[in-house]
Write a protein that binds this DNA or RNA. Sequence first.
DNA 1: AAGCTAATCAACCGCCTGACG
DNA 2: ACGTCAGGCGGTTGATTAGCT
Length: 213
Amino acid sequence: MVRTPFTDKNGIKRGAWSEGEDNKLRAFVERFGHPNWRQLPKYAGLMRCGKSCRLRWMNHLRPGLKKGNYSHEEEQLIIKLHNELGNRWSAIAAKLPGRSDNNVKNHWHAHLKKRLRLTNTYSSTSEQFTHESSQFDSQSCEHDEDGYNLSNMINGMDWIEENNNHIKTMEQLSSINTVEQSLPSNSQTETFDFNFWSEPLFDDFWTQSFFLQ
DNA sequence: AAGCTAATCAACCGCCTGACG
DNA sequence: ACGTCAGGCGGTTGATTAGCT
């Protein structure tokens, strides 16, 4: 699920990162930090652009990154924050320890957005859902930019998740009339010498000594 | 088994912002 | 005040995998 590696006309490598490249970047950043991403690949012995190195570090290599499935709580928090902040993925990711902005954004587009759409479709077919699934007063509860009731969204998502096996398609969902009866009634840096990097001797001496270790 | 389509997510691109000279 | 540069952000692309016919 990654782009095929290739080298562009400037000799910059692009596409998927190899394990060796990851190791070089990780080792270098852990040792020297990253005060200058543009210069970093040169000193780290990587044929990558600085942006690519930064992205790789931020989204895959930095310590504490959480991989794998999102918890229910995380998903609810994303929905809530997206409602409050819009597409400010970095701000949303900042509230989710261990998740990168890219990761959150992908999860939103691949999972949550669709589920919310599904929920709203269902919501519009069931007046009862709108009434009973919300434990909040309609005047005071939160709404998204399109006017959707946020609490209903989350409750609806809960329900869809619980009943996922029974709902296969949007068509099926919108044709269900008896579903509402089954709805729950109470649903709810390290320090670094910056001048060091501009020191010409750094070029050969440090990169060599680093990789000779 | 083969072909097709949808889903997933890593990586890229272009733009914006702030720092600095 | 202006230009340049680097970092960061959000949108988009594309390769791979999974599932369906």
